[in-house]
Amino acid sequence: MSLSRYGGVSSMNGVAVSRQSKRQRWKRNSGMRLLFLLPTLIYLLGIFLVPIIYNLVMSFRNYTAASINGNAPFIGLQNYIDVFRMPAMGQTLVNTIEFVVGSIVFQAIIGMALALLFNRKFPLSQLLRTLLLIPWLLPLIVSGTAFKWIFDQNHGVLNAVLLHLHIIHAPLGWLVSPNLALISVIITNIWVGIPFNMVLFHSGLQNIPEELYEAAALDGCNKWQQFWSITVPSLKSVIAIVLMLGLIYTLKVFDVIMVLTGGGPANASQILSTWSYDLSFQNMQFGQGAAVGNIMILISLIFCFIYMRATRQSEVN
């Protein structure tokens, strides 16, 4: 658009010129532009920055229930030292990694498989694809409650089915045994996340030109080779986005675990988000809760930067 308006610029230095003119235009209209940016800026500051700064400040203070009334003394990094010394910290970190990796890997693989399936047209494909979106549309409290019943040791449907098929010989305590609680919440979270992955992959698949596959078929590639040499490279940016968003969404999962196990038994399914809530609203150690919250933000930020780095590089390429 700018090229055509300022016309007659050779394509070689077109970039430089248009950048310069952009800067000039920016200066001319800057007052007006700022005015229109203002609502967004106020929104960002009020909704994001202020709470984050408040959380950061809180994590450096001995903030308990009594601090609501009086003051919260500054204690430097003590909250961070305290939470890292707690016995629950190691287990919570390991749980968080297992939860995030387990959820994302299976969500992506199953989501991709379903996307490939629905990329072909077959009878009722439209209807089935819509039905598969249901897990995503349900409020997490509802799906959590449903899974709580499915996983119930004594009258849950999962144990009933497995017992009937003679896969297990005694009912398993999906939510109440320390070895299974984390797996159960991961399974639930995978189920919740599949539609999101499927939709993104599906729309990515539709942008791949059909000719590529035709050419590959002529060259004698089998389906598997086509998938690895055409589909995956073409979807590179979509895959990056799906993994990135999946990581951030999964890191902050809260409702599912709260409904299913409350982080228990004995912290067996505790992850950083639920632990932060526990510290704040069960133990009334708001400073420590804020510290754990900030550790989560930090992890998210690190992956955000990696993602932005990667996408910028691929844009340059």
Binding site: A66, A88, V176, P178, G264, P265, A266, A268, Q282, M284
Partner: peptide, 22 residues
């Protein structure tokens, strides 16, 4: 006194560890 929430955290963890055989 007002430490019941903190004591509860310690005690309930112990109860759950014992009940689940951890």
């Amino acid at each position: 006194r007002d430490k019941l929430p903190n004591v509860t955290d310690a005690v309930t963890t112990a109860i759950q560890q014992a009940l689940t055989g951890e």
